[in-house]
Computed example of a mutant assay.
Amino acid sequence: MNRFVRQWLKYDLVVQDELGYVPFDQLSAQLLFQVPAARYELGSTIITTNLEFGQ
């Protein structure tokens, strides 16, 4: 696990706001997925977006 992901494990709550507002390249998308996956059962994560559910 890299240092970036480990630093997000120490928080009780992480809010990822406006997900989908800016397009991601493949590496960024993978990293974005790693944070909530690593936090599973360790802390709460809220993800918000203005995209329609189907998008």
Rank of each mutant, 00 (worst) to 15 (best):
M1L: 12
M1I: 13
N2T: 15
N2C: 14
N2K: 13
R3L: 11
R3D: 12
R3P: 02
F4E: 15
V5N: 04
V5E: 11
R6C: 10
R6Y: 09
R6M: 14
Q7C: 14
Q7S: 15
W8S: 10
W8C: 11
W8G: 05
L9V: 04
L9G: 04
K10D: 07
K10Q: 10
K10P: 00
Y11I: 07
D12L: 01
D12Q: 11
D12A: 06
D12G: 02
D12I: 00
L13W: 02
L13I: 05
V14S: 01
V14C: 02
V15N: 00
V15T: 03
Q16C: 04
Q16K: 00
D17M: 02
D17H: 03
D17R: 04
D17V: 05
D17K: 05
E18F: 01
L19D: 00
L19R: 01
L19I: 13
G20N: 01
G20L: 03
G20Q: 02
G20H: 01
G20S: 01
V22D: 00
V22I: 14
V22R: 09
P23S: 15
P23F: 03
F24T: 14
F24Q: 15
D25E: 08
D25G: 03
Q26R: 10
Q26I: 07
L27R: 15
L27I: 13
S28D: 13
S28E: 15
S28C: 14
A29N: 08
A29T: 06
A29W: 08
Q30M: 13
Q30L: 12
L31S: 07
L32V: 11
L32I: 11
L32Q: 05
L32Y: 06
L32W: 04
F33G: 09
F33M: 09
F33Y: 09
F33C: 13
V35H: 05
P36N: 13
P36T: 15
A37W: 05
A37K: 14
A38T: 04
A38E: 07
R39G: 10
Y40H: 13
E41V: 06
L42I: 10
L42K: 15
L42M: 13
G43R: 02
S44K: 14
T45G: 02
T45V: 14
T45Y: 02
I46M: 11
I46E: 07
I46F: 09
I47S: 03
T48R: 07
T48Y: 06
T49Y: 03
T49W: 04
T49L: 07
T49R: 06
T49M: 04
T49V: 06
N50V: 04
N50I: 05
N50Y: 05
N50A: 05
N50P: 02
L51E: 01
L51N: 02
L51W: 01
E52I: 03
E52R: 10
E52V: 06
E52P: 03
E52D: 07
F53E: 07
F53T: 09
F53M: 08
Q55C: 04
Q55W: 03
Q55N: 06
Q55I: 11
Q55V: 12
